[in-house]
Each structure stands twice: as C-alpha cells, then as structure tokens.
Amino acid sequence: MARDDTASDAGRRDGRNLPYLLVLPGIAFLFVFFVVPLITLFKISLSNKPDRLRPEYDFTWDWGNFSAAFTDFGSQLVRAFVYAAIATVLCALIAYPLAYFIAFKAGRYRNVLLGLVMLPFFTSFLLRTIAWQSLLADAGPVLSTARSLKLGGLLEALQITQDGRLINTQLAVIGGLTYNFLPFMLLPIYVSLEKIDVRLVDAAADLYSPFGRTFQRVVLPLSMPGVFAGTLLTFIPATGDFINAELLGNPTSRKVIGNAVRTQFLNQNDYPAAAAISFVLMGLITALVVVYAKFLGTEDLA
C-alpha cells in the first residue's frame, strides 16, 4: 500500500493513482466479457439471417427482429412476467416475517437460523426442483394427504389442482420459482432489518404507539431498501428462468421467454431473433425497475 497520510473525509484517503490501478483489472475484465458481448448481441439483434439453415448473419440495421419479438413471443413474455411477478410478491410475503423473526426474535440463535436459511444455496437448484416433482406428484405426499383429508374437491374448487393434479400446472411453476428465489428475497430484507436501531422501536412504544403503527411508520419504511433489493434479486432472474417451467410445468406453461431465447439460440441457430428477444426482455425489466424505484421513492417521501 502506498503511504499517504493526509487526513481525509469519511476516513477515506487520497491514494493518487493507486485506486485506479486497483480497479483496472476488474474493469478490463467486465469490459471485455460484459460490455463488448452486450454490444455484439445488440448488433446481432439488428442483423438478418440470409440462410435459414446456417447460423451466419448480416448486419443490416434490421429493426424487424424487435417487432417480431413482440408479435411472435408476446405470450411467452407476458407469461414469464406474470409468473415472476406473482412469485416475487409471494417471496416478499413469506420472507418478510421470517427475516423479522431472525432479526428481532431469534436472540442467540440468530446465526444458526441465518445459516439454515442459506442451506438451500448449498443444495443443487435443480435437485431442489426435482424434489418438488416428488412432493407434488400424483401419488406424492401432498396430494395423498389432501385426499385422505377429503380435501380433493376443495383444492379443485380453489383451482389449486387441475384435474386432480398439482404437478405440471402453472401453480407448480410459480411455487417452484417462489421456493428457489426465497433466500434472495430474505437476505437483503434481513440485512436492512438488522440495521434498524431497536431504540427507535422502544421509543415509539414509550410514546404509546401501538405495535401496528410502529411497524407501519418505523420498521417498514426503514426496511424498504431491503425489500427493494430483494425484489430485484428475485424478479429479474425469475423472468429469465426456464428451469422451473421446464421441470414443473405443462406444455403451455413451459413457453416462457427464457425457453424461447434458449431454443432460438441453441436449437434454431437463429441468433438475430434470439438477440432481439433478449433485448426486449432486458428493456422491459429495466423499465419496470425504474417505475418500481420511482414508486417506492415517492412512497418514502409521503
């Protein structure tokens, strides 16, 4: 470390060129393998493909791929966004109380519980999903329990099952997404809850604020950054995911946008179409994130 002992604001120091030297390798890596490929992908999305059977393409400023992405893959886009949105909301509803419990009620067991929450990370994502196949199967534990409790009719009426099946339904896909992304929602919420100064909650109680109001006025607003981060970490990967749809869904629910990109790329070799779908997906996600950030921002001010 170069020594430079002039005192500086926020404890940070003036390292002259050192910090730039430190970030250089990382920036170079990100530039070559992230920025350049995205530009390449964008160029391909504006190309057309002269020969149907060969992967080669010509760059022609052809915006047609983008309109085709909406017309040909509109339903896949909508389906992916709806599944991801429902799964994200469910994740938040399940993760918040869990994070709250770990942050405020777990006491000395806090780290054990946090470790347990992380445990799914150390089991294969695919095997967890395959485990849901076993659990939701026609002869699996969930349905046989429901049957022995004579709940079959009720589940069907609530549209939880379709023709007496749980596996290969849209609900199974959403359940799988919710399950697999839950830790990504939970950890950021936990981090923001943990930072809250308990004295604020005590102060509110001393001033006779009922718990509901303290939660609404103090705890919830202070944890919003965590909810925001968790939503992004859940929603964004969930929209592009096709593994849950593939392993838990039926032929209709399998048609999500991630699967479309994959087949266009790896099976159809139609790179321009696939590139355009990718950018449509990214554009829509960015737009939604901006709107969501604005929405939360105004909420904070109110």
């Binding site: 393998f33 992230f34 490929p37 995205l38 390449t40 992908l41 992004l232 964004i236 990967p237 929209t239 592009g240 995911d241 096709f242 946008i257 991630g258 990109v261 994959r262 790329f265 696939a274 590139a275 990718s278 950018f279 997906l281 990214m282 996600i285 960015t286 994130v289």
Partner: peptide, 11 residues
C-alpha cells in the same frame, strides 16, 4: 441486473 439468459446469450 442482467437476466442470466441474456448474459449467456451475449457471451
């Protein structure tokens, strides 16, 4: 914030 599928495709 880039979906994995887009990152994979671009690489």
């Amino acid at each position: 914030t880039t979906p994995e599928i887009v990152m994979g495709a671009s690489l």
